[in-house]
Simulated scan of single mutants.
Amino acid sequence: MKHKKVEVDAYQKAKKGNFYCGDSYFYTETENEFICALADGLGSGEFARESSQVVVEIIGENIHASIEQIIKRCNEKLTGKRGVVLGILKIDFKMKSYSFSSIGNIGVMTIMQDGRKKRNIPNAGYLAGYHRKFKVETGNLDQTMNFIMFSDGVSDTELAQRYFLNKNVNEIIAAYEYKNGQTKDDDTTLIAMRYTG
């Protein structure tokens, strides 16, 4: 899908034998910012999907809030529900900066204009209504750069592939699906984003 400043494409597949994928994602772009979130409900199937959907709905209603405020609101809504792991990326077009936080096994990889790749180290644990410490990482935008967000169905071996250095998000997703599209033992979501200034 073509946006004004950020191009996005995504791959998603439910765990082998499941109709429902426990992962949910959301993204949108406004005049001043872009936000993308990926939530993975604990376990798999319908109840995992329900929790991850609750989280992306809250994020959709709070796109202008800070990452800290969004995570707090998501955590409050998950009381009594199955927990989730969560990754959120925000790009601030005016400040030419990005920030992200991931709790649990949602990964974020940044790929700079010169091809350097950097993987984040997620905060431990998951959101389930309890107070959870987490950190938000920030960085300056290159003129163009890619962000890859993924759930735990994507392996380290897959992430090492050269096609992640591609400039085109549709080609990244197509290459991933072609090479790894077989049935997985976990819900799998991979989101490729390209900031083009």
Results as ranks from 00 to 15, higher is better:
H3A: 15
K5T: 13
V6T: 11
V6Q: 03
V6K: 02
E7V: 06
V8A: 12
Y11R: 09
Y11P: 10
Q12S: 14
K13N: 08
A14G: 09
N18A: 03
N18G: 02
F19W: 12
G22M: 09
G22F: 05
S24W: 00
F26S: 14
Y27N: 14
Y27G: 13
Y27T: 10
T28W: 04
T28K: 15
T28G: 11
T30W: 08
T30E: 08
T30G: 14
E33F: 11
E33Q: 13
E33C: 13
I35T: 06
C36A: 14
D40V: 00
F47R: 10
F47T: 07
A48T: 07
A48I: 05
A48S: 11
R49E: 05
R49I: 00
S51Q: 00
S51P: 01
S52W: 00
S52T: 03
S52C: 02
V54T: 07
V55W: 00
G60N: 08
E61W: 03
E61C: 09
N62R: 12
I63N: 06
I63D: 02
H64M: 08
H64E: 14
H64R: 14
H64K: 15
S66T: 09
I67Y: 00
E68Y: 07
I70S: 03
I70H: 03
K72D: 09
N75H: 05
L78A: 03
T79G: 06
T79V: 13
G80H: 11
G80P: 01
G83Q: 00
V84G: 00
V85L: 04
L86M: 14
I88P: 01
K90S: 12
M95C: 12
K96V: 04
K96G: 11
S99P: 04
S99R: 02
S101R: 04
S102D: 07
I103V: 13
I103F: 02
N105S: 14
I106H: 08
I106L: 10
I106Q: 06
V108W: 00
M109V: 09
M109Y: 02
D114L: 10
R116A: 15
R116P: 01
K118N: 14
K118Q: 13
K118F: 13
G125Y: 04
A128Q: 02
R132A: 09
R132S: 10
F134A: 10
E137W: 04
D142A: 10
D142G: 05
Q143I: 13
M145E: 10
N146Y: 01
F147P: 04
F147T: 11
M149N: 06
M149S: 06
M149L: 15
F150S: 06
V154R: 01
T157G: 12
T157M: 15
T157N: 12
E158G: 07
L159Q: 03
A160W: 05
Q161C: 14
R162Y: 07
Y163H: 08
Y163M: 05
F164N: 03
N168D: 11
I172Q: 06
I173E: 01
A174L: 11
Y176G: 08
N180L: 04
N180R: 05
G181N: 06
G181M: 00
Q182V: 09
K184Y: 00
D185M: 10
D186Y: 01
T188G: 08
T188R: 09
T189K: 10
L190R: 03
L190Q: 03
A192Q: 07
A192W: 05
Y195T: 13
T196Q: 15
